[in-house]
C-alpha cells in the first residue's frame, strides 16, 4: 500500500482495541519530529526509520511542528518539551494543542526531567495516544515499543512517573501494603502497558497478571475499568489524588 492512499494506518484504526504491541507490524508509522537540535533529530530519524517508522517532517520549533502536523496528519508527533524561542515549555504547549486539534495523532513528549505538573497538563482527561518520557529513554530498549503504543492510540509513561505521582501525596503507605509483585504490575500498568505486555515483561502468564490487576484494584478500591486507556487513567488519577 502507498502511504498517501492510507493516511490512517491500520495501527490507528485499531487503537481503540488497545492491542498496541502489534500496531506497527501491520504498516509504517508516519512520524513528525520536533526538536531544536539538528544533530539529535538526525540520530533519532535514523533510529526511527530503521525500525518501521517514516519521519515525514522535522521541525525546530513549535510553530513549524503545528504546521507540519496540520499538513501531514501523521500517526505520531515526537516533541521535545524545550524549544525556541524561550527554551521553556513551548513543546508542552504545542503538545496540548496537538492533542486537542488532532486526537488521532499520538503525541509523545520528551523531556530532560519529569514533572507531575507537566504530566497533568499533557494528559488531561484522557490517556489516549499520549506519552511522556525522559529524553534519555530514546537509547533504551523500550523506546520503540512506546513509540508504537502511542502511535496506535495507547499511552506510554516513564517508569519514574509512578513514584513521582505517589510521592508527596500520602499514597506511599497504601502502596506499601501491596506485595512487591503487585507494585511491579501497578508500575507497568501506570506506564501504559497492556496485560500481555506486562506478562511478557515479568515472564508471567497473562492469567496471572490479570489476577494481580484484580487484586490491586480491590486493595486500592479503584473503579473496575476494563477498557485499557481508562484503566491507566484510573491508576494515574489514584496516584495523583491524595
Amino acid at each position: 500500500m502507498t502511504i498517501a492512499a492510507t493516511p490512517a494506518t491500520p495501527a490507528t484504526t485499531t487503537a481503540t482495541t488497545a492491542t498496541t504491541t502489534t500496531a506497527s507490524t501491520t504498516g509504517v508509522t508516519r512520524v513528525v519530529l520536533a526538536d531544536d537540535s539538528a544533530l539529535f533529530r538526525v540520530a533519532l530519524v535514523e533510529l526511527l526509520e530503521g525500525n518501521g517508522c517514516r519521519v515525514v517532517a522535522q521541525a525546530g520549533d513549535a510553530e513549524r511542528l503545528l504546521d507540519a502536523v496540520e499538513r501531514e496528519r501523521p500517526d505520531l508527533a515526537v516533541v521535545d518539551i524545550r524549544m525556541p524561542p524561550t527554551q521553556h515549555l513551548e513543546g508542552l504547549r504545542a503538545a496540548v494543542l496537538l492533542r486537542r486539534r488532532h486526537p488521532v495523532t499520538g503525541t509523545l513528549l520528551l523531556s530532560q526531567h519529569l514533572e507531575v505538573a507537566h504530566l497533568d497538563e499533557l494528559v488531561g482527561r484522557t490517556a489516549r495516544g499520549v506519552g511522556y518520557l525522559l529524553k534519555d529513554r530514546v537509547t533504551g530498549p523500550d523506546f520503540l515499543d512506546a513509540v508504537r503504543r502511542v502511535a496506535a492510540g495507547g499511552c506510554a509513561f516513564d517508569p519514574e512517573v509512578v513514584p513521582l505521582l505517589a510521592g508527596g501525596r500520602g499514597r506511599r503507605d497504601e502502596l506499601a501494603e501491596l506485595s512487591p509483585r503487585e507494585r511491579q504490575v501497578l508500575g507497568l500498568m501506570a506506564q501504559g502497558r497492556s496485560n500481555a505486555a506486562i506478562a511478557d515483561e515479568l515472564h508471567l502468564t497473562t492469567r496471572t497478571v490479570e489476577t494481580h490487576v484484580r487484586n490491586i484494584f480491590v486493595r486500592l478500591a479503584l473503579p473496575d475499568e476494563t477498557e485499557h486507556n481508562r484503566r491507566v487513567l484510573a491508576v494515574l488519577t489514584y496516584l495523583r489524588s491524595a
Partner: peptide, 20 residues
Amino acid sequence: EAGLLPALRALAARSASPVR
C-alpha cells in the same frame, strides 16, 4: 515552569523519607 507547590511536591516525591 510550574510554581512553588508543584516544585515542593516534586521535592517530596523524590525524597528518601516520606514527605507530605
